[in-house]
Simulated scan of single mutants.
Amino acid sequence: MTRVVTVIGMALLGLVVLVGCGSDIEPGRTLGEASKVQGLTVATAEASLLAGAEMFVGTVESSARGMITSRIDGRVKRIGVSEGQSVAQGALLVTIEDNVAGDRLAEAEGAQQAAEARASLANKTFERYQNLFSQQAVTPQEMDRVSAELEMARQQLRSAEASVSAARTAASYSRVVAPYAGRVVRKEVREGSTVMPGTPLVVLDRAGKLQVRAEIGDAWASKIQTGQSLSVELPALEKRLAAKVAEVLPASDPRSRSFQIVLDLPEDAEIRAGLYARVYVGQPEVPTVLVPRSALVQRGQLYGVFVVDEQNTLRYRLVRPGRVHDDKIELLAGLSPGMRYVTAGVDQAVNGAVLED
């Protein structure tokens, strides 16, 4: 009996507590009322027909890249360019300090002066003997000897002049100049480095046409032709360009099951060799959803948009972005046609908030 009374007492006490708590909540209000936002721009997602594409990785490169090397022994005295710098034809790239070439030039010039003196003396001697021979004052044998000496002196002079020319050319190799106008890609040496003939000094890209070289899956081997236009994206510059196929390499790599293609890029001062590129090979048009870039919200490594449900409540929804099309982004998953989403003012949007008109 005592146990029954105790249970009834506890039940009555709980009822009293509930009645007391309920009296604190004003009529017409609930706990945890949702916040409200306004001033957001909302649009309805629509399906757009875009050409689907398979993406392949490529690299921007010059149509002509050259390795400038040293032709003499010596020490790098000065490097006159920096990486990425544009240079004109004949511009000084590297100066090599070379005492050997200078000494050889001085020696060759001295030998030339001596040969010139001998040739001058032999010519004068020949003229004198020629006058004496006309007067029959010297024998034919003596005249032949003087003629031979003159010819030998002339040969020695020509040889000395050739040596001077070669020495001057070798000495000029201490000044390494650009063989053509272009852009410096990379410096292979530093000031003070010792170099020998054949040592790489500077990598130089020829100015003008840039290209993209890409590895394409061999399933496309029969579908890509020279002159065909493909879409090329440069993520670093946020640019998408049309490029024509300039070359299709016939050999396929059996390990990667791919082959190479080369595309000519249009002229653009911002594009430089070495940039990462994406090459898209087209497929039939497929429906896709495009949203403005302003609608995309990044949180860490994830992307999402704020959708508006039937109760006008904002919900943060994860999406998977795809290709960039000018000021819009393709969404591969997460947003379906017909769904309402926030296009502007996402910085004010809060998950679970009610959107007011």
Rank of each mutant, 00 (worst) to 15 (best):
V5E: 10
M10C: 09
L13N: 09
G14T: 12
G14H: 05
L15D: 00
L15I: 03
L18A: 13
S23T: 14
V37Y: 05
L40P: 00
V42Q: 02
V42N: 04
T44H: 04
L49E: 15
G52H: 05
E54H: 13
F56N: 10
V60N: 01
V60L: 00
V60E: 01
I68G: 09
R71G: 14
K77H: 14
K77V: 08
G80V: 05
S82P: 02
E83Q: 11
Q85C: 05
G90I: 10
L92V: 11
L93M: 05
V94G: 00
V94L: 02
E97V: 02
N99W: 08
N99G: 07
V100Y: 11
D103P: 02
R104K: 12
E107Y: 01
G110I: 06
A111Y: 01
A115P: 08
L121Q: 15
L121M: 13
K124H: 15
F126P: 07
R128Y: 05
Y129K: 11
N131F: 07
N131P: 02
S134A: 12
Q135H: 15
Q135Y: 05
A137S: 11
A137F: 12
V138G: 01
Q141D: 10
E149N: 12
E149H: 01
Q155F: 10
Q155C: 07
L157V: 00
E161D: 08
R168N: 10
A170D: 14
V177N: 12
A178P: 00
P179K: 09
Y180K: 10
G182W: 00
V184Q: 01
R186Q: 14
L201M: 07
V203D: 07
R206Q: 13
G208W: 04
K209D: 13
V212Q: 03
R213P: 08
A214I: 06
S222H: 11
K223A: 15
I224C: 00
T226K: 09
L230D: 00
E233L: 06
L234Y: 01
E238P: 09
L241K: 07
A242D: 14
A243F: 02
A246K: 08
A246S: 12
E247T: 15
S252I: 10
S252A: 14
S256R: 09
S256F: 07
Q260S: 14
Q260N: 13
I261N: 02
V262Y: 05
L265Q: 01
I271R: 03
G274N: 08
L275H: 06
Y276S: 15
Y276C: 04
A277V: 06
V279A: 02
P287K: 05
V289H: 04
P292R: 01
R293Y: 15
S294M: 08
A295N: 12
L296N: 09
L296Q: 04
V297G: 02
Q298I: 05
F306P: 01
V307H: 00
V307T: 15
E310R: 11
R315I: 09
R320H: 06
R323P: 02
R323E: 12
R323Q: 14
V324T: 14
H325M: 09
K328E: 13
I329L: 15
L335G: 04
S336A: 11
P337G: 00
P337N: 04
G338N: 03
Y341H: 01
V342C: 02
V346I: 12
D347H: 11
A349F: 04
G352F: 07
E356R: 09
D357A: 11
